[in-house]
Amino acid sequence: MRSHRFYTPWLLMLPALVWLALFSVWPAINTVTLSFTNVHQLTGGHFIGLKNYWLLWNDPHIRDAMINTVVFMVVCVPLLTLLPLLLALLVQRQIPGIAFFRTAFYFPVIASAVTVALIWKWLLDDRGLINNLAQSMGFIHKTIPFLTDRWLLLLSAVALTVWKGLGYYMLLYMSALGSVRRDLHEAAAVDGAGTVRRFWSVTVPGVRGTMLLVSVLIAVNAMRVFSELYILGGRTGGVGGQDVSIVMLVQQAASGSDGRLGYASAISVFLFFLTAVPLLFLTRLNKNAQEES
C-alpha cells in the first residue's frame, strides 16, 4: 500500500483554507489594522495609534448601544433557548396535520427582510393593527408607542427576533430530541416522575449539548443585532438614536462616501471582545455542569 505524501491532506484542505484566509482571517487582521488608522472610504489615512479607541470611549452613543445590545442579548438568550425546545417537544409528536404546524413555525425563518419589515411596522405603528384593535375594543385610549418608546421598541425587536428564530432552533432541537433515549422517559415515569419532572431530569440533560450550541449562536447573533432594530427603528436607531446597537454604530460610521473605516473598525474590535465575554461564560457554565454530572 502506497503511503500518502505529506502534502496530500493540505491539498485537500486548500480550497477551504484559501476561502478561510481570504474571507475570515484577512478581514479580521485588516479590521484590527484599520482600527489604528484614520482611513476613510475614499481618502485613505494614516496610523493614529489608539485615537479611535479614545474616540469610542467618548462617543455619546456607545453607552446606549452597549446597554441596548446587552439587554437584547440577555432577553433573547433564555427565550430562544427554551421556547424552541418546548415547540420541538410539541411538534415532534406524530399526529395528523403536524407537518402543517412544523412548516408554519419555520415559515418566518425564510421570510424576506423586506416582508418582515412591512409586516411588523404595519403591526406596531401608531395606526397599526395592534393599536387599532386595542383601541376599537376599548382596552386603551392612547396608542402604545411601540416604535417611539426606547424600551418598547427594544422589546418589539426581541419579539421579532424570537418570532423569526423559533423555527430554526426548533429544527435543531427536533434533531437532538431524537437521540434522547425513550427508555429513560419510561423508567422515570415508572418511578413516578410527572411531565415537568421528566422534562428537567431527562429531556434537558439529553439535549444539553444542543442547548449550549443554541445559546452560543443566539448570544453571538444577539451581540451583532442590526436588522431587527434597523427594521423597526430606522437608520437613526429609533427616535433620537436611543435604540442604536453596536453594529448600527459600525454601519453609521462606515457608510457614505465619507465613511470612517478606521473608527468603524475600532468599534468592530471592541464588539469582538464584548462578544467573547458571554461566550466564555456560557462555555464555562457548560463545563461546570458537565463536571457536576
Binding site: 484599520l34 489604528f36 488608522t37 482611513v39 475614499l42 485613505g44 473605516l261
Partner: peptide, 9 residues
C-alpha cells in the same frame, strides 16, 4: 500588516 496598514486606502 500593521505597518503596511498605516497607509491603507
Amino acid at each position: 500588516l500593521l505597518a503596511a496598514g498605516c497607509g491603507v486606502g
